[in-house]
Design a protein around this nucleic acid. Structure first.
Lengths: 196, 196
DNA sequence: AGATAACTACCGAACGTTCGTTTAGGTAAA
DNA sequence: TTTACCTAAACGAACGTTCGGTAGTTATCT
């Protein structure tokens, strides 16, 4: 790993943790054990560094889901696989996820558009295409959004919900969450007794 | 509205927009048309001001849902009412919502515990209690989390999803979203033709 | 009632620190 | 000799915070 990649990968972690204005160039320089000017040798300014870090974090994430959609499973199983994959991707790369969340909260419209079309659009379309097959009577856009929302919320608010009653150790296990979400999606709340 | 409240309500908006380190005391002073020292007259330091702003934003939010739970509707209607109420609360007070999101992302464990137990715990318990009645076979904690996640995601990621295909003007209307979420929850994806 | 002390709310100016960024220069490999 | 990569030191600007002081109101005492 060269210096530039070292800076970028550390920047992802620290920007995700502290936010854009919360991380100073000096902090980053200390973290990668370089001088501030060394960073400025690789990047013209802080903003460019930030954008490159975001882009760096996003690269290579798309490939994970390709095999889910391409597999020859029945639709219900495909849905379960997608849910499980997305949970795992988010859980395993929390820095990426937090950085993304910050971007969506803070970014200006142009950058959001870039993000939407460059990174997420294709995945969202694949999901919509699939839900259209699975539930043709429903609005595919809304269903896809719902699925993403169900999954993301477990990760986003886990630190808060840790302090709520009813929390059990098994709620830390991605497979349990994935199973719950899949069942909920397929059968709704009015199901006829499958699990307690 | 006195000066202290004026400072606090403006701080909520600006902290939500720029984050803790993104908002300087000088900016805030300019925004409320006071001197920096005037702010320091009311608050000992920036951190205390931030915490008081968070607390100020949270006050009085609990009352909205009381009547939902107390009403004598059938459970399905109760669920629909809750979904609609939560969406409306979030949509109408976006600053509160963004501030909350930031807190959950950035706050340390002690502050999270304070937030969880002081603000959200009671509401979450009421929702769990209700879902336990509605779907006794399911894990109430997971169901409650799912419902919150379904609702919140529409608001959180709306700015991003604006750039996705399949987006329609009606997706801006809270009632449409509420109806979709309620139907999805009650019947799941495998429903027998109710809406397109 | 009138003088005075105390208090509240605010201001301009400055404190020391840290910020993003630049400059001038050094070192090793090609 | 050039190029890539790095350093120490410094720049002005902005940061959180403090200080001394000034109006205006309220309370206290004669």
């Amino acid at each position: 790993m060269n210096s530039k990649e070292k800076i970028l990968s550390k920047a992802i972690v620290l920007f995700a943790e502290k936010g854009y204005s919360g991380l100073s160039m000096r902090m980053l320089a200390t973290a990668v054990q370089m001088s501030v000017a060394a960073i400025y040798h690789h990047f013209p300014d802080k903003n460019t560094l930030y954008l490159e870090a975001v882009r760096f974090a996003f690269s290579g994430k798309e490939l994970v889901f390709a095999q889910v959609w391409e597999s020859a499973c029945p639709p219900e199983e495909k849905l379960a696989n997608f849910v499980r994959s997305l949970i795992e991707v988010i859980v395993q790369d929390r820095d990426f996820h937090r950085l993304m969340q910050r971007e969506i909260m803070e970014a200006n419209p142009e950058r959001l558009q870039l993000l939407a079309q460059g990174v997420f659009k294709k995945q969202f379309c694949l999901l919509m295409q699939f839900t259209a097959e699975l539930a043709p009577e429903l609005d595919a856009y809304l269903v896809a959004t719902s699925i993403i929302g169900l999954i993301k919320n477990y990760i986003d608010y886990e630190p808060l919900q840790r302090y709520f009653p009813g929390r059990k150790p098994e709620h830390d296990q991605p497979e349990i969450i994935a199973a719950h979400i899949t069942t909920l999606l397929l059968q709704g709340l009015k199901m006829t007794g499958t699990r307690s």
